[in-house]
Amino acid sequence: MEKEFTDLDIKKLNSNKGLLALLSKEPLNVERALRYLNYEKKLKKLQVELIKLQTWAIENNERIIILFEGRDAAGKGGAIRRITERINPRHMRIVALPKPSEDQTTQWYFQRYVEQFPKAGEIVFFDRSWYNRAIVEPVNDFCTKEEYEIFMNQVNDFEKMILQSGIFLVKIYMSISKKEQAKRFEDLQNDPLKQWKMTAVDKRAQELWDDYTEYKKAMFSKTNTEISSWKVIRANRKTEARVAAINHVLDKIPYQKDIKI
Rank of each mutant, 00 (worst) to 15 (best):
M1R: 12
K3G: 05
F5C: 08
D7K: 12
N14V: 03
S15R: 04
K17C: 00
L20N: 09
L22Y: 06
Y36F: 12
Y36R: 11
K41V: 06
K42C: 03
L46T: 06
L50K: 04
K52Q: 10
A57E: 07
I64P: 05
I66P: 00
F68Q: 06
G70W: 10
D72K: 12
G75M: 08
G78F: 06
A79S: 13
R86E: 08
P89R: 05
R90V: 00
V95P: 02
A96K: 12
L97T: 04
L97M: 06
P100S: 06
D103Q: 14
D103K: 13
F110I: 09
R112E: 10
A120Q: 15
I123G: 07
V124A: 07
F125Y: 14
S129Y: 12
Y131Q: 02
R133A: 06
A134D: 02
V136A: 13
E137Y: 11
P138M: 11
C143F: 04
M152E: 15
N153F: 09
N156H: 07
E159N: 09
E159K: 08
K160V: 04
M161E: 10
S165A: 15
S165I: 04
V170H: 02
V170F: 01
Y173H: 14
F185H: 13
M198Q: 11
T199W: 08
T199Y: 09
R204Y: 03
R204A: 13
Q206W: 15
W209Q: 04
D210F: 08
T213N: 09
Y215W: 14
A218D: 10
M219W: 15
M219H: 15
M219C: 12
T223Q: 08
K231V: 01
V232G: 00
R237H: 15
E240H: 07
A241F: 03
V243W: 00
I246T: 02
N247W: 01
V249A: 01
K252F: 00
K252G: 00
K252A: 12
P254G: 07
I261N: 02
